[in-house]
Design a protein around this nucleic acid. Structure first.
Lengths: 333, 333
DNA sequence: TAGAAAAGTGGAAACGTTTCCACTGGGAGG
DNA sequence: CCTCCCAGTGGAAACGTTTCCACTTTTCTA
C-alpha cells in the first residue's frame, strides 16, 4: 500500500501544500524581513546573512524594502502580520515611534531589530551610532581638525543617522570644537556637487566631513575633486559602514567598519531562538560591533592646506596648532 | 450591526488571515525570487527593482539566495512551489539544465528568467553576454591588444560567465587573435594576487583582461598594483556590470554597463502580466540591454609598455603596431 | 394594504493539512 | 478455539477564509 502511494506521488509530482499545513499548524515557517533598501550594500549584506541563517533553519524569508518610508514600513508590517509570519527581523525608520513595531510587540510576535538601537528590553543587533560618532570625532581631533561637518542622507527617516549626528555634536562639544555643520541630502541627488560647494562656502573654516554612509562618502570625494579640492589635502573625509570598495579606491576611505552580514545572521538566529525556545545567541555589545579604520581620506589639515589654491578661496584656513590639540586631548582624559 | 462588528475589529486589532484566504482562493499573492547572492550589487539592485514592482501590485516577495549552488537552487524552488507562490523571478545556474526551472515549467507556474538568456520561448529579461563579450573584444582590438585573458568567478555554476567567455573566445578568433587565456577563481578568494601573478607569468604576452564582474575587476586592479603593475600601463582591464563605484575609482573602470534594477522590475512586471492575464511589457532585446563604457583602466598597450620594469619581466612586450590593428578592424566590417 | 423586490442574515461546503479516535483484521498466547 | 493486543486503515473535526444558497426582514410599488 505504502509503495503504491509513494509511486503515485512520484508520478504526479505531488507535494504537500504548505498553506494547508500552515492553516492547520498556525505556523508558516516564514520570517518577515524589513529593511530600507537593498541599494545600500550594508542592508544587502545583512539580508544575505539573515536569509542564509533562516534557510539553514528551514525558514523562508519574506522581504520588504521600505525605501525609508515609515508609511510603507507600517503597511508592510501589517501585510506580513496578516500573512502570519512566524517572526520579524527589521530595520525601522525610528525604533521609538514605529507603529509597526508597536503592533508586533502587542501581538507578541518573535522579532529582533537590526541596526536600530534597542529601546527598553527589545532584542537587537546594532551598532552604537553615538559611540561610533565619538570615535570619529577623536580621529578628527587627533589630526588637528577644529571645525568639521556632518553629511547625511535620509536624515529625517533614519534614527541611525540622527544618532550619529547627535554623538558627533556631543563629541565636538566635549572637545571644545565648533558645533558641526549639518548638510542633509533628500534623495540620492545628482546635485551633490552644487550642494557641497554651497555648504563649504557657508562654512569656510571647515576641514573635515563625517558622512553617514560610505557610498555617499565616495561620491562626496568625487564631488570635492570636481570642485578642485584635494582629499585629504583640503578636506578630510570619514565615512560609515566599511564597505569593501572603500579600501579599493585611492585615497582609501577612512571609515567606521561594521560587519553587516554577521549582524543580519545574528539577528536571524536571535529570532529563531525566540521562536523555538532555544537559548538565544549572545547579542554583542553595540559598542563593540564597529571599529575605526584609518584611511588616506583623512589627514591633518594644517600641513597640506598651503598648496591648495581653490581650497583657500573656498575655505580660508584657520586651524589650531597641533599643540592645542594635544592639550585638548589631555583634557578629555 | 455592521457598526458593532467594525468596532470589535478595531478593538481586537483583528485582521483577516492570509493563509485561510490563500487556502480558499488557492492564490498567495506571493512571488518567489531566486538569485545567486545579494553580495553582488547587480542582484541586490535587481531584487530591489523586482520587489518594488511586486509590492506596488500588492504582491510579496519570497527571497532565496542560492549561493551559486544548483542543489540549493533546486531545493529552494521545490520549497517555494510547496508554499504555493503565484510566480517566480529567477536567475538560475544554468537555464538549459536547471531541474527547478523544468519543474516550474511542467507545473506551468508563471515565471520569468532574469539575466539568463532564454532558451526556447521562455520569458526572460537578460543581457546578451555573448554580444557584450564581442563588444569587449572590439574595445581591446581598437586599442591594439593582441592577446587578452578572461577572469571569472563561479565559472562552473554560472551560464552567464560561460557565455561571456564563449563570446570572448569567438571575438578573439574572428580578429585573428590568440585564444584568450582563462583564469577561474573558485571562491571570493584572498589569494587573487598570487593567482594573478602566476597567470601573468604563464601568459607573458597578455596585455588585457576581461573580468566577469566589476567587483572582481576592481580587486584585480588592486592585485595588479600590488604586483607592481600599472593599470592600464601594463595591463588593461575591462569589467562587466557597470556598478556605480566603477566610475568613482581612479582609474575609472572600463566596463559593460547594465541596468539591473530595470531588469528586475521588468522581469517582475512580466510575471505579473502572466498571472493576471494583462498584456506583457515588451522585453527589451538582450543585445540592447547593455552598453560599453570606456574608462581609464583601458588603454593601448604598446605606448606605455616601455616604462614598466616589472611589467617587462612578467610579460615581455610583443605587441602589434597600431597600423595592424586598423587593418584588422577594416577586415571585420 | 397586499405583493414583489431588495437587502440582510445564517448556515453549509470547500480549500489541504494534521490530529485524534474508532474500527478492522491478523497474529500471538492461553 | 477464544481472547487480547497491535498494526494498519478510514473517517471526523479543526484551522480561517470565501462562495453560494436559503431564509427572513425590510423597503418599495401598485
Amino acid at each position: 500500500m505504502r509503495q503504491r502511494v509513494l509511486i503515485a506521488v512520484e508520478e504526479l509530482g505531488f507535494e504537500f501544500s504548505e498553506v494547508g499545513r500552515s492553516l492547520q499548524s498556525s505556523t508558516t515557517r516564514t520570517i518577515g524581513c524589513v529593511v530600507p533598501s537593498l541599494a545600500n550594500p550594508v542592508f544587502a549584506d545583512a539580508v544575505q546573512g539573515a536569509q542564509e541563517a533562516f534557510q539553514e533553519a528551514g525558514y523562508q524569508t519574506l522581504l520588504v524594502c521600505t525605501n525609508y518610508d515609515p508609511e510603507i514600513e507600517t503597511q508592510a508590517i501589517r501585510t506580513l502580520t496578516a500573512k502570519q509570519v512566524d517572526g520579524f527581523v527589521l530595520t525601522v525608520s525610528d525604533a521609538r515611534s514605529s507603529d509597526g513595531l508597536k503592533s508586533i510587540q502587542s501581538r507578541e510576535i518573535p522579532h529582533c531589530l537590526l541596526f536600530n538601537m534597542a529601546p527598553d528590553n527589545e532584542k537587537s543587533w546594532s551598532v552604537d551610532d553615538r559611540s561610533a560618532a565619538l570615535k570619529v570625532v577623536d580621529a578628527f581631533v587627533e589630526r588637528g581638525h577644529r571645525h568639521v561637518g556632518f553629511l547625511a542622507l535620509k536624515f529625517k527617516s533614519s534614527d541611525r543617522a540622527r544618532q550619529r549626528y547627535q554623538g558627533f555634536v556631543e563629541g565636538c562639544s566635549r572637545n571644545g570644537m565648533k558645533k558641526p555643520a549639518l548638510l542633509e541630502i533628500d534623495e540620492d541627488s545628482q546635485i551633490l556637487t552644487d550642494l557641497l560647494k554651497e555648504f563649504l562656502r557657508d562654512n569656510p573654516t571647515l576641514t573635515g566631513l563625517f558622512i553617514s554612509n560610505d557610498f555617499l562618502a565616495l561620491e562626496t570625494i568625487r564631488s570635492a575633486r570636481a570642485l578642485g579640492l584635494s582629499v585629504p589635502g583640503d578636506l578630510s573625509i570619514i565615512g560609515f559602514d566599511g564597505i569593501k570598495v572603500g579600501m579599493m579606491v585611492e585615497p582609501s576611505l577612512a571609515t567606521i567598519v561594521t560587519d553587516p552580514k554577521m549582524m543580519g545572521s545574528g539577528a536571524a538566529r536571535t529570532v529563531l531562538s525566540a521562536i523555538n525556545g532555544a537559548v538565544a545567541p549572545v547579542q554583542p555589545d553595540p559598542k563593540l560591533t564597529f571599529s575605526f579604520r584609518a584611511g588616506g581620506s583623512l589627514a591633518s589639515p594644517a600641513a597640506e592646506r598651503t598648496d591648495g589654491e581653490k581650497a583657500a578661496t573656498l575655505s580660508p584656513s584657520n586651524n589650531p596648532t597641533k599643540k592645542n590639540v594635544k592639550i585638548q586631548q589631555e583634557r578629555l582624559k
